[in-house]
């Protein structure tokens, strides 16, 4: 099942995170969130290790990791750009903002630039609806975005 040549990650590196939640099944999502916060994605070996420690089938760990959109099995870029696609942002033109970011970064939503610098993702409402269209650069909320504001935003980083 495992491709031997690509294994670089030791599953047991995530033990402290699992221990923090007493290896409880109900904490699976929290554990995966903490792992992702640490490694910026969910390495396959980590998922397999978590499943072993929580005494759940590996398929459940992968099921959860692929069901929720917050998780990614691919490494993300150093910088995360989220474009909010909530209704309030949509009626104020978030689609145009997204397309401009896609053009500027030369990647589609969900992609990562080849140099590993940026990952671009869309999000279905971040609850900052009064500020729409909203772009979140790493953890910073940028309000009232327009396509023309986009280039400045990416250069500044």
């Amino acid at each position: 099942m495992r491709k031997k040549n690509q294994t670089t990650f030791e599953g047991s590196r995530v033990d402290p995170i699992i221990d923090k939640y007493n290896a409880e099944q109900g904490s699976l999502i929290s554990i995966l969130q903490d792992i992702q916060a640490e490694y910026r994605y969910l390495p396959r070996e980590a998922l397999e290790h978590v499943a072993r420690r929580l005494n759940i089938p590996v398929v459940q760990a992968f099921g959860v990791a692929t069901f929720f959109r917050a998780f990614t099995l691919e490494p993300r870029g150093r910088q995360l750009i989220h474009v909010c696609m909530g209704t309030a942002c949509h009626v104020r033109g978030s689609q145009n903002v997204l397309e401009e970011v896609e053009r500027k970064l030369e990647i589609k939503a969900g992609g990562t630039t080849p140099d590993g610098e940026y990952t671009l993702e869309t999000v279905n409402c971040v609850g900052a609806c009064a500020l729409g269209p909203v772009v979140i650069r790493n953890e910073e909320y940028l309000s009232h975005m327009t396509p023309t504001k986009v280039s400045g935003l990416l250069k500044k980083v």
Partner: peptide, 8 residues
Amino acid sequence: INRGGGAF
């Protein structure tokens, strides 16, 4: 507290 995984 449990944090959600971003599923509507």
